[in-house]
Design a protein around this nucleic acid. Sequence first.
DNA 1: ATCCGGAACG
DNA 2: CGTTCAGGAT
Length: 298
Amino acid sequence: MKKAITPNVVSSAELEYYRRPVVQKDVDIELFHQKILGFHKDNRRSFPWRETTDRYAIMVSEIMLQQTQADRVTEKYQAWMRRFPDIRTLADASLRDVLALWSGLGYNSRGQRLQNCAREIEDRFNGVVPSLPTELKTLPGIGDYTCRSIPVFADNLDVAAVDTNIRRIIIHEFALPEDISKSQIQAVAEQLLPIGRSRLWHNALMDYGALFLTSRNTGIRPLTKQSKFEGSKRWYRGRLLKELVARDCVFVEEIHEKYGSCPWGLQEILDDLLREGLVEEADWSNRQGGRVLRIRAR
DNA sequence: ATCCGGAACG
DNA sequence: CGTTCAGGAT
């Protein structure tokens, strides 16, 4: 049985401070700022997306970082930015190229949605990534966290973006219940934000959570839980999509032969891929002795 | 509330 | 081998 670390790693006076439900007084918040920023001064991670304020580049990194460890994103991000350096290039690319570069990151729909973001930005925002959370939120694959994190890191905007690290830190440091609502956490995060230092603050919190106040150390579990992957429906879907990316097109019959061992409805998986627009039926399908599928051409 | 990937870690 | 991960859509 692992023992979770307790907040009183420093002093009992600090413990008393941390145990307060929600801190309102400026002096207490100032103490918390010093604690986090002080830690960050000596323990900061280095990532390529921290070297830019280009909003498109930040958007790419934030989508890639969704549910993916930061260390694992670095190389993918660099390859992506070389191949798709700007909105226009990404909007004009083929979905096959997009998925090929996404390969290995997981949750392939994120890659597709990122491209759809680029296409919508071309159409609706004159090719310029929006700067406001309310506008970003209307784009595919950009939700409550990402619509805030992009302006935070690109523009130093004073809004609070709560990811799994920041949620865990707030729950632990202020001894809040784990089942606290998203809106409650959001409210606390907004109170804690040091105005004018949003980018630095969010980087500091995330480094603090990733390097020190980890899930393992605190015993605080993340919101999302996954069923076993090996042999799962997602596992077959991933393999299937990977093969479709590698090949021009595939007969449905061939898919059933190759993945006949799939205990899940293979047809259901294919229907999902078709419905989501990742895969399409070739227009010359059926004239070739059966249905033919391929990655959506456009 | 469930589904969406896949790699890395202890 | 179970858990985690700068979440989002349905």
